[in-house]
Amino acid sequence: MLLIPCPWCGRRDESEFACGGEAHIARPADPDAVSDAEWADYLFMRTNPKGAHRERWVHVHGCGRWFNVARHTVTHDISAAYKVGEKPPGDAS
């Protein structure tokens, strides 16, 4: 049972949240401009790293906010939680 740091409500039990999978998957601005393969990539293909990962969570039984979490998939260490639209920590781009 993870303890997830909601950027608004603070640390709360995993049971209050739902996971939305990999973060930072951009929806193509013009869906008609991408090929079937590119669209399928956006729809279905996700990374499944052993190690550092960024994923989306929503505090569904709390403030209702979506946010991003940087989590290590082996140790479950959560190194950061940041709001939608914020840059991931350590991301210089």
Partner: peptide
């Protein structure tokens, strides 16, 4: 409801 919130918060703020 969650679907609408998700799109409003994450894609269409």
């Amino acid at each position: 409801l969650a679907w609408l919130e998700e799109w409003l918060q994450t894609e269409w703020p």
